[in-house]
Design a protein around this nucleic acid. Structure first.
Lengths: 306, 306
DNA sequence: TGTAATTACGGGATACGTAAAGATG
DNA sequence: CATCTTTACGTATCCCGTAATTACA
């Protein structure tokens, strides 16, 4: 028999003053209350209350045990509500990691509002491009862009992310605007270089087929931020994520080209160790990100494509 | 599902570091541990530990909840052991009531030893001849002599009690020793008088029949102690309980007569509100009384009859 | 590849509800 | 005599153990 139910019943019986009333309170048959009390007293080996049909009288043991029970029930309720996701208020400490570039631009700015909305919460934001072991390093949530998340972890799509070929209007005036990916061979393409040479190049969708453009120009770099800067200086075309260039497109500093051949969008994901039973703070945080990413259309409107 | 078992399991899993080890500890199948953890996490709506086949990692919620659980388990165990009859040491407060005369002579003297044997115990002894409502006045135990105890209460026989006709040797020398109850008509019988006149007289067993002698002499009183004193002064015969006159018989101050016609012994009882589930202190107290009443043969040896 | 967690499944203990009986003031 | 507790009894639940499966290092 459930020991907690037993002491709950005991406390309820004392509070209501009769088995019948306690039964009504707990929504069970009166007989059940009597049996629970029998079981509790039998287990303890001591009588807790003298029972007549008219009056229930606590024994000295019952008196002492009642006080303990009341305290324990209160502590149990407190412990569970502290931890339970049912609480409306998020508490504790949220640990988030994100890629450095994206995090600086699109995670860090969203944190002050979230912190203000949840005053019982503290946050650690880790910005790093290395792959983080969420579980072992104690992170609640990672933001990942583009590539497929780790196995055994769970990802939720926060927003679409599109890769675009961009350049300054000035560059396009000088070099011309390419109308087809094959024309890129005649342009200054600012390629991302990698020691691991895992970069597959710029992806395009041509007649239902995915093609990759790998032909670089006179400049390449292993750092996307640098490519971005070079592109802004009119040094050539770059293949960048919308989240990186949205502001520049909005301001007219950059223009996107070859939108008709853009590859299917990949995503921006929230990655967590578990799909279910997430702490409230994590669910609220992911909601926060999703809401703002959906609302801040500044990075989505890249020609109306998406 | 038993909430108490759930948190016990949770604590055990953390302590042993794996479900399998916790299962062995609790003597159940490993699958059971997993299901209990599932149920606990589902009920709380939050994950308490990240589980792989090799390592269990507490989540922040799990960490916090674990500490609460450990404290609650300790308090639960404490509360139950405090109250449970399983504890070897009697504690708390024992409330006893007894008839005034009997209590002064045969209850109060036994209390100092009992108190010394149970140092965690305190005792209240109420001596009164009125009938006490054990439950409502908060008594653990009453000692009753002779008559049948109240209904709905439970009595345990502590010792036999015999009523005897006694007198001083001097009186018998003067008035003669009666050989049959009918000869009492010629003696100075010190009768107990009562306003309620519920006294049935002196009971004798004659040829298998119970007879009552009601013929008084020149003296009667409503107080047994007074009759006793008069008897000791040689004023006549008295019909007294062995517990009252045992010391006098032992010392030769009184002699019993008509032992062959003595009525069947009635008893000395311990009366409690309940038969089962008695507090440890009550069981020990009753044992104490029974043991000493059986051992202190001074009041039993009243001619070898009993 | 071996160990541990999980899932599937069948059986059995047990707690429940209903209704009648007993107790109490 | 009304009300509350207790008992009797049939039923449904759910919890467990076994064994096969999956996941992880």
């Amino acid at each position: 028999m459930d020991r907690f139910t037993q002491i709950e019943t005991f406390v309820a019986v004392h509070a209501k003053g009769s088995f019948t009333a306690a039964a009504a309170l707990e929504g069970v048959a009166p007989a059940v209350i009597g049996r629970r009390m029998d079981a509790l007293e039998a287990r303890l080996g001591v009588r807790l209350m003298h029972r007549t049909t008219r009056k229930l009288t606590l024994t000295p043991e019952g008196q002492a045990f009642l006080e303990d029970c009341q305290r324990i029930l209160a502590e149990m309720a407190g412990a569970e509500s502290q931890v339970s996701a049912g609480g409306a208020q998020a508490r504790g400490h949220l640990r988030v990691t994100a890629p450095a570039g994206f995090g600086r631009r699109h995670v860090a700015p969203l944190i002050p509002l979230f912190l203000a909305e949840h005053t019982q919460l503290s946050i650690s934001l880790n910005l790093a491009d290395r792959v983080i072991d969420l579980v072992n390093e104690g992170y609640d949530c990672a933001v990942r862009v583009g590539d497929l998340p780790d196995s055994s972890l769970v990802s939720q799509r926060l927003a679409d992310n599109r890769r675009l070929v961009v350049a300054t209007p000035d560059y396009l005036r000088r070099a011309g605007t390419p109308q087809h990916p094959r024309e890129l061979l005649q342009h200054a393409c600012l390629m991302l270089s990698s020691e691991a040479s895992q970069t597959r190049g710029w992806a395009f969708r041509i007649d239902g087929q995915t093609h990759f453009h790998r032909q670089g120009g006179r400049l390449d770099c292993s750092d996307g931020q640098v490519l971005h800067d070079w592109c802004l200086r009119g040094l050539g075309l770059a293949w960048r994520s919308t989240w990186e260039v949205a502001a520049d497109l909005q301001a007219g500093r950059l223009v996107s080209v070859l939108d008709a051949f853009a590859a299917p969008p990949n995503g921006i994901f929230a990655v967590t160790p578990e799909r279910h039973l997430q702490p409230l703070r994590v669910r609220l945080w992911i909601d926060h990100l999703r809401t703002h990413y959906a609302r801040t259309e500044y990075w989505m409107r890249t020609g109306g494509a998406l």
